[in-house]
Nucleic acid binder design. Structure first.
Lengths: 229, 229
DNA sequence: TTGAAAAAATGACCTTTATCATATTTCGAT
DNA sequence: ATCGAAATATGATAAAGGTCATTTTTTCAA
């Protein structure tokens, strides 16, 4: 259920919170966040923050999908991550006290809450569980990005597409993957034309099924063996 | 001055500590670390930890260089980072409570201290400045890796080599860059032969000067413009 | 419902870079 | 100082994937 207005989403009953970094908050803290946050409805392709801007707080995805990306020299996007319900985005640069090096934009209409920087940092100071959760999250993402780099450096586009589809399958599960060809190409790190050709191959090999933008994985095992994992 | 034995290196007088994450420690804490750490002399190409092993503490580089890398499917290394004096390595996976996804190995003979996991985690609990420093460091590295990914995805090998040389120049400064062609190739993410050919080009264009393994940058500006930054 | 614009698909071509083979130089142990 | 092994260098070739041009399909607003 998507709230189309700016209606308030109550943290204490937010189903996305349980498996999020804020799952550890006690009811007092939840109430405090609830009182200090703002809730917003985002249209498709609406920006949360831009490369170069300064972090003013964190975004908490109640419902929807957000792409985190960088723009390369010729304006081509490189998607670094796709965040879904329950994830928080925008806090990395907040800690490093630097302007954002990445941008964030919704991939579909979304309900996203915003917690101000000070509120969030205070919570981190007073809540060791939250703090540990965040440190753990940052560390995990560092690992993921190391894998990403190694994949980029050593794998063919075909292998990377297989790898990316496995990631996306988990993110979109149980729905089919739903991304434009261009976004998909920008996640895999290839030209849109090349991506389209490879999708056709995968389709012909019975690995996936495609209905316009919606991609369903039919043969997960084959995908794993292609990705070389 | 390199200690070739296992002689103790005293934290309170360690010159590498000032600009390190441990710079914020008070003298009591320093004494505690000093009493609980171990110091080791590492030969060239000696391993600190392997991919797949479980973190037991953190390594603190007093003197020397350490490469952090992953091994791809065909055994080819992808270097993710090169750490120098003052840097700490091995703590990322410690937080994420997972086995190491990267390995660490000295590039030259080094003096490296080791602080056990419990000692380190206790320090983090009791020292907010250290904690903030670590969170900031993790966040910065996440940014750096986003840049790394975008570079890999969108830039030519030549551009990436320029970018990598700028990084290495800062790491090795004021010494010349001193890496095997293979390590250099594994950092840039290319084949060793391709790297050698590009080095030759850079040499002919007067951008660098090469004496066997030692590479000196002659034209930093050109390097910047090549790297597209 | 339709028409224009955006997205997806296809084809032809060409550049970049990997791979394999081999020669040359440098290094390190005796 | 010398020999053998490892590292570096170079050449030839092939393949992967990018680019540009064009067509087809889909989407979305009037």
């Amino acid at each position: 259920m998507l709230e189309k207005s700016h209606k308030h989403i109550t943290c204490s009953t937010c189903s996305s919170r349980n498996n999020s970094l804020l799952g550890s908050l006690c009811s007092d803290e939840i109430d405090h966040v609830n009182a200090h946050k703002s809730c917003n409805y985002f249209k498709k392709q609406q920006s949360l923050f831009l490369e170069g801007s300064f972090p003013r707080g964190v975004f908490c995805i109640n419902q929807g999908m957000v792409k985190i990306f960088q723009r390369g020299d010729e304006g081509k996007e490189q998607i670094i991550h796709i965040a879904k319900s329950g994830e928080m985005v925008g806090f990395r640069a907040m800690f490093s006290e630097e302007p954002y090096k990445v941008a964030a934009e919704t991939l579909e209409e979304s309900n996203i809450c915003f917690i101000g920087k000070d509120d969030f940092l205070n919570m981190m100071d007073s809540n060791p569980v939250l703090r540990k959760g965040i440190i753990k999250e940052l560390s995990k993402e560092l690992s993921d990005r190391a894998d990403f780099i190694t994949n980029m450096a050593q794998k063919s586009v075909r292998e990377r597409l297989a790898f990316t589809m496995i990631l996306l399958m988990d993110i979109y599960n149980p729905e089919p993957i739903n991304l434009s060809r261009e976004d998909l190409a920008n996640f895999v790190g290839t030209a849109t034309e090349t991506l389209i050709r490879l999708l056709k191959d995968f389709k012909e090999e019975g690995i996936i099924e495609v209905h316009t933008r919606k991609i369903t994985v039919l043969n997960k095992e084959k995908l794993f063996s292609l990705a070389g994992k």
